[in-house]
Each structure stands twice: as C-alpha cells, then as structure tokens.
Design a binder for these strands. Structure first.
Lengths: 413, 413
DNA sequence: TACCTAAATCCAATGGATGGACTAAGTCAA
DNA sequence: TTGACTTAGTCCATCCATTGGATTTAGGTA
C-alpha cells in the first residue's frame, strides 16, 4: 500500500478535528486562544468553529473576563454531540457501553458468556443488546457514530477478524468486524483490548493524556497499548503492544511460545492466585476465602485484590512479585519507545494499581538512564473497570474526531 | 506542543513528496501509473510532476512500449537533484560523506579522533573538512540541502545536543546542532546513530525497505532505529530505540544502569573480544592474532570478525552467544512494535551479519506467536560499513523529501 | 488515409485558508 | 457622559491546489 496523497476537503476535515481536539483537551477556550494553539489563523479558527457549532459538536458557554477589550467567548465540547457503542469481549463476559462525546458512560450492560460459546450466537446476542442501549437512553439516533470492538488476543487487522483468541475455545478465525457490521448495520471499528484501552485513556484523559504513554493492560492476560505522541502504535498486522513475550528473569513457567522467561505466564489472574498458594500456603488462601478451583479464578482474583487493598502481606507479596517482572519488561519497553508515562489499567488490575505501580516505578526510575532522560511517570488509569469497553467505544470517536493521518490520506479498504 | 493545523500550500508540498517517493521507490513509472499509486487524480499527478521536473528532482527517461495508444512517458529520479552531507561521530573517528538524492556516496572522508578530544576542535575540523567535499565533487552548491549528524548515545532533541555520550570523555552536554550550523552556515539535522542508520536504510532501500522495520545497529555499542510504516519512531525525547537495556538472561556483566540482565554489556566489540578470551583462551586469540590490549579493541574486533568469515569455530561461538542474547531482546521488541522485518547493520557488524542473523532469526521465528502472525524477516543492511554517515546524510534528504506529518504541520522551533 | 486507443494537458469551477479592513463590545480616564 | 483605546471576532476579496470534463497529442491498426 503506497502512501496516499491528500486534497482540500480532507484538509478541512482535518483542521476541524484539530480545533475540536484543542477545545476538548484545553477545556473552555476562546477563538483567539485557539489560533496559537492550533497554528491556524484567527479567521480560519472562526470558520472552523462555525462549522463545529453548526454540527452541534461544541457550544458557546459564556465569556471570559475582559482584559481591556471585548470579552472572549468561551467554547466547550458538547457531550451530546456524538455517541458511540463499545463492546469488550472477554472469555467470561461481554461488556457493552454507550458513551457520549465526552467519554462518559451513559448506559452499560454485562453478559456472562457460557464456555464454550458459539461466535455467531454471541455476536447476535451482543448486537441486539447493544442496539437497545441507544433506545433506552433516548439519544438522537443520527448522532450515534458506530460500534467499537475491543477484541482479545491477536487480530487480523485487514480481515477484521480475531485469530485464535486465548480461552475462546473453537474461535479459530472469526470475522467479528463484518459480523457486527451485518448485525447492527452500523460502522464498526476493532482493535485489541489493550490498544482500545489506550485510545480510551487518551480520549477521556484530556490534557493529562495528551502526550505519549504506554498503557499496561491486564484482563485475562497481560498486554500493552501504545500512544506515541498523537499516533496509535498499531503495527504491521494490528497487533502491536504484545508485551507478554518480553523477556524477564527465567522462572519455572513455560510460555506457549516455548520460552521460559516470558512475562505473560507470570502476569495473569490465574498465575497470581497460584502464586499465592505456592508461596504462602493454603492457610493464607483460607484467610482470604479463596477457593483455588480452576473455574473460580475470577472470583479468587477479586478476593485476592481485596486483600491487597486491606494490606494483607501475603497478597501484596504475590502482586509485588508480578510487579517486579512487569517492571523489567516495562523498563525495556519504555527505553525502546521513549515514552515518559506508563498507565496501569484493565478490569483485572483495578485495586492493585498502587502496589503494582510502586514496583514498576522502582524498576523504571532507578536506572541512571531513566534519570538522565527526565524520569517516567507511573500511574493508574483514569477510566477504571470498564477500560476495555470504554476503549472500544473510543475507537469510534477517535477514528472520527481525532486529528490524524487517516483524515488526510485514503483509508485502506 | 499542540497538534498543528494545516493549509493549502503545505498540502501541495506534501503531495509533491508523495509523488517523488513513489517515483523513487517504484523505479521508472509513468504519470498514469502514479495516479493509482498515490491516490491522486491524473490531473494532479500531471501538475505535481511538472513542478518536480522544474525543480530538477526528476527527469523524463524514454517511453514505455505502447499498449494501443500514446506511449507512457517514463519518469525517473535525478540523482543530481539534491545533495546532503552526513557526519557520523564515533569515539574513535568521524566519518563524513557527501551523498546525492539517490543515496549514493560521492565522496567520503575519515578522521581518527584523539582521545580525549575537545568538542569545539572536533566540530571545527569536521565542519571544515565537510565543506571541502562539495567543492571537490564540483556539485551545484545550491542543491546542497544541509548537513546531518549521527550522534552517539543519548541526545536532547529539543536542544540539539548530545548528553554524556559514552566514551567521549568530557563531552557532558554539547549542542552539536547549533555548533555545526554555526560552523557550516547550513541547515543541520541530528539523530542518534541507530535512528539515522534506519532512515538511511529506508532512503536507500527503495521498495525493499518501504514497510516498517527494526534496524539493529552496532557501533561502539548496541542500539536500534525503528521505522513504523512511514513514520520514524523518535520518542518523547528523541531517544527511542534504546534496546541496550532490554532484559535478557541474567549474566555476570553489570550494566551502567545497575541491572545485570541488560543486553548492552554483552553486545559490543569489547565484550565480544573479552568473551573470546574467557571462553576459548589465549590460544584461540593467538590464532586470530588478537592483542587483547584495551586500546586495540577496534583492531581485535576486526580480526575476530574476519575469523568468523573464515569459519573459525571459536570466533563464531562468541558471536552466536551474543546473537542469542540479541535474539531475546529483538523478539520482545518485534512483538511490542509488530514489525515484520529486522535489519542488521552498523560498521561494527559488517561481516558477521550472517552468523548473527541466523541466531536472531531462530529466536524470533521459532515461537508459535511469530508464526501465527506471518513470520519476521531478518537480513543484513543494504548500506554496509558507512551506515552511520550515510544515515546522517539521509536525515536531511528524508526531512526534506519524505512525505510525512512534518510537511503538513508546523515544525516545532 | 481514416479510425481507434491511451496518455497527458487545458480550462473553468470548487472550496478551504489568508490578510487586511471592519464591526462589536468591552475598559479607562477626563 | 463622552471619547480614546483595546481586544474579539467577522466580512470580503484573493489565492491556490485539486478536480472533473473536454481537448489535444501521439501512438497503433485496418
């Protein structure tokens, strides 16, 4: 695929996105301030703002105090300017959310998924449930932009399919993109869950997430989503961010890939629960009321996280152990990518970001290299438990309204 | 720095770059073919091509056989359309090259640098020598675009300075960009050596390097330059590609950063020479005529590489040992970045790419993950020994003529 | 020579950005 | 209260790369 040329209408759309992004991240701003902020002339800003007002994406919201002349008219984004649906598919459950342009969740729904589950059936149920949310929320249907999917594991970006997602028995190669498009009649976007979460974080986070960062995501497994400045790191096949195969100190667990130093097998709920049993014995497990049964991992992990929250030493220990490994991997990734922020999130991480963050911070910031380059901030996600689903919805918003290459060049396909 | 808006003249410049890139990579092509190739209309292609012809960047070069109507006029890049100087600074030596638009080296010069050396003096000598090259080559001075610097170690991209480059005693914080700009009166660009080499590879490599790749660069140390599709990965501070701190299996060598599993200390000429002595004894060293003296590393490493070329088992062994470690790091990097090509190069690697490549290929392609995603190609650089200096010159060419974000948005500073 | 085809250009129109003049709406001092 | 001044925002004529359709150019073929 060759690089694509651009033309005038695309420039218009792009500048519109630039101005919208500035208004979104810099809070209420006036037209004059937008000039320097966007590099556009005041006249152009004025024109673009008119279009954004006409489209209902922003609103005038009062005036700033005068500084000796006419007061500035402040502009704010309109949350009701656009909506998107997001679906996060997980081995255990599907989470569906309806979010507005501000990234707020209006409605959400959670399905437990039977195991094994049939793709067609899942898509069908999820799509129907998703379509009900905009009705129940009584939003302007014409402002619903589409549906985003946060898919687990490897995807085939060109085909819009998931490829052998772990823990989805029998899902060998499922063209989710087309299936959801068919089932909903809406535009559909798809990315892996970690990348979606990173895009969600960018979308929600405003100015705090306006620069590049690495989003370390833990769901059923560990993954990363990477924002490099204004660009999403997607990679040749749409599978960038696979941090689970980063080398860490060798241990006893063998990865699917054959190596025994991979991060992945040490950083997932099941492994951490197992670690608790092996390192601290059944007594500690009983104290936290863990069952230890293979099909109760989800519940056990929740209990374990609660114990961490309560300061239980054994619980903290296993999390710190995983944190040390993550730290090694993140240190390598941060040096390779040269990002100065690491965000921790994903539904399986909620509650342990603090303890984990300390360990990762230590690994990342105690090297002389990092200090020479100004240090790396490690902090929890701003989204919380629904990072996957909100991220999925953000794919649509981001794709439509974030200024980027895509708006200037032909979209492939 | 906020995202910048764009305007019509910039669009023109950008499309011009797109068309030039297509002509450069796709060899002799006609205007009609450029249409689909660039996504522009035939009319626009015609306009843009006229401008490129007027600027002397391309030439009409005969006709394709008729397919039933008027013959297509073929267009080729003109090597004499533009020139750039490149300077590669290394602890031992400075290499200066003059390259044309095709990336061919017209003239080059090599300086041994005294140790310790004084920055002012080095810049002065190098700048003067650089300015002589265009004279000696008798090129059209108005077509000389500027000078590129491939700097060792960490840089401060904003200040255009190198920061504590390893093995440059007393070079604490040297604003090379301004110093060279002052000394030559030319536009100057700077990047670290690995990134420069990657950009050079892209520039020289044509269609073979038109997609993303990771350039594993070995000079005095190990580094990486990363091309992601059409974008250069530069990072927040301009120091992306630091692969030397990737975690590998723990060993006896401690990194400057404090960790003992870092790749860096195991992958540099000095370490490999040392490995030969410790693993195969003085006898093997004598066989290759190595001196083993600390200040003869450069020569010893050259001898060792020659031995590898001759098939010496001991020599191959130490290279394979380093290759295994590199493989672990590259595997992690490739998974994180999702690139499907790894290029090996840099002046210290010339001659051992083959042996090293096999080892890295093994590490990268024997995992089931990689196979599922289509495999990763590992191959030697197309440039050879002067990758650093040619890369440095390419910084200028790339910055001026490669279609990119930079051409659509305001350049900071 | 007449006819067909494909490549490339001409031409008027489109539409977003731009710079300078202008209007709107405030402050401040007399 | 008035007039000078300042700042925000818009109007308007102009600019310019791209575009689609018509036209020219230059080859083949019957």
């Amino acid at each position: 695929m060759a690089r694509s040329g651009t033309n005038l209408p695309r420039v218009g759309g792009y500048n519109q996105a630039v101005v919208l992004a500035a208004i979104r991240t810099k809070g209420p701003v006036s037209r004059v301030e937008l000039g320097p902020l966007t590099g556009l002339t005041n006249q152009t800003v004025s024109n673009v703002v008119r279009r954004l007002l006409d489209e209902g994406l922003i609103a005038e919201s009062g005036h700033a105090p005068s500084s000796g002349g006419k007061r500035r008219t402040l502009l704010t984004p309109r949350a009701d300017g656009a909506y998107a649906l997001g679906v996060h598919l997980d081995p255990d459950a599907a989470v569906i959310v309806l979010v507005d342009l501000a990234g707020s969740v209006l409605l959400s729904r959670r399905f437990a998924l039977p195991r094994p589950s049939d793709p067609t059936e899942v898509v069908d149920r999820v799509a129907r449930a998703a379509l009900r949310l905009p009705e129940r929320a009584a939003i302007d249907r014409s402002r619903l932009l589409g549906l985003g999917i946060a898919a687990p594991g490897p995807i085939d970006a060109e085909a819009g399919a998931v490829v052998d997602p772990p823990n989805f028995d029998g899902w060998r190669r499922v063209p989710l993109l087309d299936m959801f498009a068919q089932a909903t009649g809406m535009p559909v976007a798809m990315d892996n869950d970690a990348t979606a979460a990173a895009i969600g974080e960018r979308w929600i986070g405003g100015e705090e997430r306006a620069d590049g960062f690495l989003f370390l995501y833990m769901g059923a497994g560990i993954g990363a989503g990477v924002m490099l400045g204004n660009h999403v790191l997607r990679g040749d096949s749409g599978n960038a961010g696979e941090i689970g195969h980063a080398q860490t100190e060798p241990g006893s667990r063998r990865c699917d890939c054959g190596s025994n130093g991979c991060l992945g097998p040490y950083c997932n709920p099941a492994a951490l629960v197992e670690d608790l049993f092996t390192r601290h014995g059944a007594a500690a497990a009983r104290r936290m009321e863990l069952s230890g049964a293979p099909d109760a991992v989800r519940a056990d992990w929740r209990l374990l996280r609660r114990a961490v929250g309560a300061g239980d030493e054994a619980a903290c220990d296993v999390v710190r152990l995983a944190g040390r490994r993550m730290g090694q991997a993140v240190r390598g990734a941060v040096a390779l990518l040269d990002v100065s922020r690491v965000v921790l999130g994903g539904e399986a991480l909620v509650g342990v970001e603090q303890v984990l963050g300390e360990e990762i911070d230590k690994a990342v910031n105690t090297t002389s290299v990092a200090r020479a380059l100004g240090g790396v901030t490690v902090e929890p996600s701003l989204i919380g438990e629904t990072a996957g689903a909100v991220g999925a919805a953000s794919l649509v918003l981001h794709g439509r309204y974030a200024p980027g290459w895509r708006m200037l060049t032909e979209v492939p396909g």
